[in-house]
Design a binder for these strands. Structure first.
Length: 574
DNA sequence: TAGCATTGCGCG
DNA sequence: AAAGCGCGCAATGCTA
């Protein structure tokens, strides 16, 4: 995350079947260039990294870094041109005439396969593969120049530099996490499945699932009902006098009928079976590791997405299957109320900062007197950040508006801008996408003389939808930036820990994974996999990194980001 | 029969 | 059927 340093840059790209490395000084002036056979690339990268520790500039991280990792080579820093382009392309702080806005070849999806397959060694065709950004050296060099110019043209260059460094560090970590994997105890997973779903029988349906299904069919008097078919289930419910409009758990739970209990039970079991059952285990867990595909920057707000394996939806039920290797342990940490804390800092709302002083921000709101109990405080705060207008949440929001006028003013203003078709930005300068042409047309049609009330209603509804999106964008996006800085700082600190004395056996994974490393990340939570002897140091690294992330974003502004942190062999909660 | 939309539910 | 943001995925059923 050192962005103010004077490190040099090395641009990597392809040319006629080889790699080319262009060495630049800190100002971007070319020092020299060298041609490297692809087979020699890992060794050469290792040498350059050891001697110069440059910031590696490449088209996209998975394409370059995953083969390097597979060859046992790790780098400290990079600049991911594709991710940087996606940010600069729309950044409101960048000059509207900047050429980076026109280099559309870089508006590309990441060149990763989404399946559980392993990385292949530089096997991209010279003539650009189906997707992914350009890979040739000339394209990389010219895009890098456009991006440097864009940052220089920005009204907030230092924030943007920080954002690009953090985003790129995230890309390195995502590739490393995929390579290392999350330690997963398949036997424990199997035990959980068998305990919950019942023994697998020859018929295929586990015993408890079959039993729940039988009770549902009996209660509805329909022995051949396909419960998994929503339309059929709905009709059967209606025939039995259960007059629901949907088959969602929320609505069913309000009904009183003998079918409700077994049906909710069936849905719970069927969900576990189809989402994370034995088929999932066989497909996604190998050699004691779950290796999901993380997609940094995959969400418009800057959050990560995932592709394959459902890495971002691991049910709490299965967390006990996350288990450290023999001789190793896990440091599991999550930030308490990240988003409202970020909002307090962004808006310099001293009342909300005061509420955030302790470990529990919602308790702080209660102490401040704005709202009577913690549960309501939480609902109100979420409602304020999401744009609730009705229900319990909507009713409570005005009280927060009175108690925390600056914080609420910030999100209200973001919503107003969004409704008007404007663009909002995060703390470090990631901007929301502009409204679509269709959205604009709808709004202008509604303001013309010949318009119908239906047009007006529809336009207003869509305007409010967009307002809720931009309202949340500034908070969710800035929280994602905080989390990226946390991760990047953590990675650096873990890498600096002394080597493990008697390296405990680790049964799979790349060389760097024999050292404490980040094994999982989910918006506001990290899991570090570490040899036991380094557990305390790793936990300290997690805590120190959080404090440093706060300083990077908000300087000396007095806002804390307390962690719930524990050292344990498994990741199970409570 | 492949591709798309809908429904529902898991996560933050 | 969430009121109120952002996602991914599986199963089903319809359509081209």
């Amino acid at each position: 995350m050192d962005v103010t340093d004077t490190a040099s840059w090395v641009v990597l790209g392809r040319s006629a079947g080889d790699a080319v490395a262009v060495h630049l000084d800190a100002d971007g002036a070319e020092v020299r260039r060298e041609r490297i056979a692809l087979t020699a690339l890992p060794g050469r990268v290792r040498e350059i990294e050891a001697s110069a520790a440059p910031r590696w500039v490449w088209g996209d991280t998975p394409g370059w870094y995953e083969p390097l990792l597979a060859a046992g080579v790790r780098v400290a820093r990079c600049h991911d041109l594709r991710l940087a382009h996606a940010i600069l392309r729309w950044a409101a702080s960048v000059d509207s005439a900047a050429e980076v806005r026109r280099s559309t070849a870089w508006d590309a999806a990441p060149a990763v396969e989404s399946g559980p397959a392993t990385a292949t060694l530089f096997d991209l065709d010279d003539e650009a593969s189906a997707d992914g950004p350009p890979s040739d050296i000339a394209a990389a060099e010219s895009e890098f120049v456009r991006q440097r110019d864009a940052v220089a043209s920005s009204t907030e260059p230092s924030r943007l530099r920080l954002l690009l460094a953090a985003e790129s560090a995230g890309a390195l970590i995502a590739s490393e996490m995929r390579a290392a994997g999350l330690p997963w105890d398949a036997a424990e997973h199997d035990r959980i499945l068998t305990r919950t779903l019942g023994e697998r029988s020859a018929g295929g349906t586990p015993a408890h699932v079959a039993a729940a299904a039988a009770r549902v069919r009996a209660a509805l008097g329909d022995p051949s009902l396909s419960i998994d078919s929503q339309p059929k289930l709905l009709r059967a419910l209606h025939r039995a006098g259960v007059l629901v409009e949907s088959t969602s758990r929320w609505e069913l739970a309000e009904q009183r009928h003998p079918v409700i209990e077994p049906l909710l039970e069936y849905k719970k079991l069927a969900r576990l079976q189809s989402a994370n059952g034995w088929a999932w285990l066989a497909e996604w867990v190998h050699d004691g590791r779950f290796r999901p595909v993380y997609v940094p920057g995959g969400v418009v707000t800057g959050r990560w997405a995932s592709s394959g394996g459902g890495a971002l939806q691991l049910p709490r039920q299965l967390r006990a299957a996350v288990r450290a290797d023999e001789g190793w342990t896990l440091v599991v940490a999550d930030v308490a109320q990240l988003e409202p804390r970020v909002l307090a800092a962004m808006s310099s709302d001293s009342a909300l900062v005061a509420a955030a002083r302790g470990r529990d921000l919602y308790a702080g709101i209660v102490e401040g007197g704005a709202i009577a109990d913690r549960a309501d405080a939480k609902i109100a705060m979420l409602g304020a950040m999401y744009g609730a207008t009705s229900g319990q949440s909507g009713r409570l929001v005005p009280r927060l508006r009175r108690a925390y006028p600056r914080a609420m003013g910030l999100v209200d203003e973001a919503a107003r801008i969004g409704e008007d078709g404007g663009v909002v930005s995060t703390w470090l300068g990631r901007s929301s996408p502009p409204p679509s042409d269709g959205w604009r047309e709808m709004q202008s049609r509604a303001s013309q003389v010949e318009t119908t009330s239906a047009d007006v209603d529809r336009a207003r509804r869509h305007a409010r939808d967009r307002g809720r999106f931009t309202r949340n964008f500034v908070v969710q996006g800035t929280a994602a930036e905080w989390a990226l800085c946390w991760l990047a700082e953590l990675r650096t600190r873990l890498a600096a820990l002394p080597p493990v004395s008697a390296s405990p056996a680790v049964h799979s994974g790349p060389a760097f994974a024999r050292h404490p490393h980040v094994a999982f990340f989910l918006h506001d939570e990290v899991i570090v996999h570490t040899p036991r002897e380094h557990a305390d140091a790793a936990a300290r690294a997690v805590t120190d990194a959080a404090a440093q992330a706060a300083r990077i974003l908000f300087g000396d502004f007095p806002i804390d980001f307390p962690l719930d942190i524990r050292i344990d062999a498994t990741a199970s909660k409570g």
